[in-house]
Simulated assay, not measured.
Amino acid sequence: MNDIEPADVRAMREQGDLRAYLRQQITTGRDRGKPPPATAPEPNPHRIPGAWPTGSQPPQPIPEAPAGAWEAALHRLRTGTQTGIRCECRACDPTTGSHPAA
């Protein structure tokens, strides 16, 4: 930063530069808080504005699930065959590991 000695202040006062020096320090301090001016990035010559990037395409719609897929997934979840974990409570069938019908 600025290491200013009392002798420097005395010399500036004698030359009449102290007021200008202090004003310059105030201006520098104010400018320090301002962000630098924004510069526009260099345009990419291979990019077409509004177009998908080369080699890509818009997302496709999600296909409909086949009939009975939700019921089959729910059955696998309930029986534990989806995760490989079998229920070991006393009410469950020990051969299948599934809960009895309620």
Rank of each mutant, 00 (worst) to 15 (best):
N2F: 09
N2P: 05
D3A: 14
I4N: 10
E5F: 15
E5V: 15
P6M: 14
D8K: 01
V9M: 10
R10F: 11
M12N: 12
M12C: 05
R13M: 10
E14S: 05
Q15F: 08
G16Q: 13
D17A: 07
L18T: 06
L18Y: 15
L18N: 10
L18A: 15
R19A: 11
R19S: 08
R19E: 09
A20C: 03
A20E: 08
A20S: 10
Y21E: 13
L22G: 02
L22P: 01
R23V: 12
R23A: 13
Q24I: 04
Q24K: 14
Q24T: 09
Q25R: 15
I26T: 07
I26F: 11
T27A: 15
T27Q: 11
T28H: 05
T28G: 06
R30V: 13
D31S: 15
R32H: 06
R32E: 08
P35R: 13
P36N: 10
P37V: 09
A38V: 03
A38R: 13
T39F: 12
T39Q: 14
T39W: 11
T39R: 15
A40G: 07
A40N: 14
E42N: 04
P43V: 05
N44Y: 00
P45R: 05
P45Q: 07
H46Y: 11
H46W: 11
H46G: 07
H46L: 10
I48A: 03
I48N: 04
I48Q: 10
G50V: 07
G50L: 09
G50A: 08
A51M: 09
P53W: 07
P53F: 03
T54E: 15
T54S: 13
G55I: 13
G55P: 08
Q57F: 01
Q57D: 02
Q57C: 02
P58K: 12
P59Q: 09
P59V: 05
Q60D: 05
P61D: 06
I62N: 01
E64I: 01
A65F: 11
A65C: 08
A65S: 13
P66C: 02
A67R: 07
A69C: 08
W70N: 06
W70L: 09
W70T: 04
E71G: 01
E71R: 03
A73T: 08
L74N: 05
L74R: 12
H75W: 01
H75N: 02
H75F: 01
R76E: 14
L77K: 04
R78L: 01
T79W: 00
T79Q: 00
T81I: 06
Q82H: 11
T83C: 04
G84I: 00
G84K: 00
C87T: 01
C87R: 02
E88Q: 11
E88N: 12
A91W: 02
A91K: 07
P94H: 10
P94V: 03
T95S: 09
T95C: 03
T96D: 03
T96Q: 02
G97L: 04
S98A: 14
H99D: 07
H99M: 11
A101Q: 10
